[in-house]
Amino acid sequence: MAATEGGQTSSQYILHHLTNASVGEGFWTWHIDTLGWSIGLGILFLWIFRRVAKNATSGVPSKTQAAVELIVDFVDSTVKSTFHGKNPVIAPLALTIFVWVLLMNLMDLVPVDWLPGLAMLIGEHAFGMDPHHVYMKVVPTTDLNMTFALSLGVFVLMIYYSIKVKGAGGFLKELSFTPFNHWAFVPVNLILELVTLFAKPLSLALRLFGNLYAGELIFILIALTGFYQLPMHFVWAVFHLLVIPLQAFIFMMLTIVYLSMAHEDH
């Protein structure tokens, strides 16, 4: 789709690509494209790993089995070197986060017009909709709602394991007497520790969102160049191949570190 096709200006084209398909109003607005792609990619992750586990062989592995084993070994070694507690949930959680976020990030490599253009054609010819009112964002991690949902899930686990390991009193004492171990500094400690605590999920969400949103925006700007789109898309995609797994790794790594800190009983 050309940038000005159907009377769209460049700014309208960019805005169209950055708008989610949504239903509902206000707080109860649901981004159905984010939900659809994230759930679909999650199911794909489960199907691939379950299929490999069922068909695993001790002989010469298939390419898929070798790739899965490489990912599992990588995550397992990362957890063992970073997490200092004993919890059988951490390694599966880290694996799920890494692969799921990686798959969602990889959608950024699909040319920006392919899937939204297909959605516009289906909306126009199958449902009689105005194609300019059919929206489709295919990279779930470019939606702040998705990255915050992931980070809030990690935050809930942090609070849960902090209370489980240290007890409610121990958790409150840690907030009140760190870093200054004196009752006179309790208000100062609470301010410092609560800011640090709430900054963790905030930084997790914004870091992932910011990097992927910026990458997607550059792909959209490249699409506006017309004739030079494919070679420039390829060059940026090669560079973006470094960003995509790196952001998945950082999200996984910080999750492990935060949960390891939650298991430390001072």
Rank of each mutant, 00 (worst) to 15 (best):
S151Q: 09
V156R: 05
P140G: 11
H233P: 00
E193T: 14
K200M: 10
I218G: 03
G170V: 02
M232K: 04
L224M: 15
V195E: 05
I163E: 05
L224Q: 14
P131Y: 09
P179E: 01
G169W: 04
H233R: 11
V186Y: 11
N211P: 00
T196S: 14
I222Y: 04
L202K: 02
T196A: 15
N211Q: 07
L157I: 11
F219E: 02
M146K: 06
F234L: 15
F209R: 04
G169C: 06
V235W: 06
F219H: 11
L175C: 09
V165Q: 11
Q229G: 01
V138H: 14
T225G: 08
P187T: 10
L175H: 14
L172N: 04
A184D: 08
F180I: 14
A168I: 13
Y213F: 12
T141G: 01
L217V: 07
Y161Q: 13
V134R: 00
K173T: 03
E174S: 09
S151W: 08
V195G: 05
F180P: 00
F155Q: 10
N211G: 12
F198W: 09
P187W: 10
M232T: 11
F227M: 05
P201K: 08
N181L: 07
L197P: 01
S176A: 15
F177E: 00
L157E: 06
K173L: 03
H233C: 02
V195H: 03
Y213L: 07
F219W: 02
S176L: 01
M232H: 02
L221V: 07
Y135M: 03
F227V: 12
L197N: 04
P187A: 13
A199H: 00
A184Q: 12
L208P: 01
Y161W: 15
S203C: 05
R207C: 05
A214M: 06
F209Y: 15
G210W: 06
V235G: 03
L172K: 10
G153Y: 09
A149L: 15
L152M: 14
N145C: 05
L208W: 01
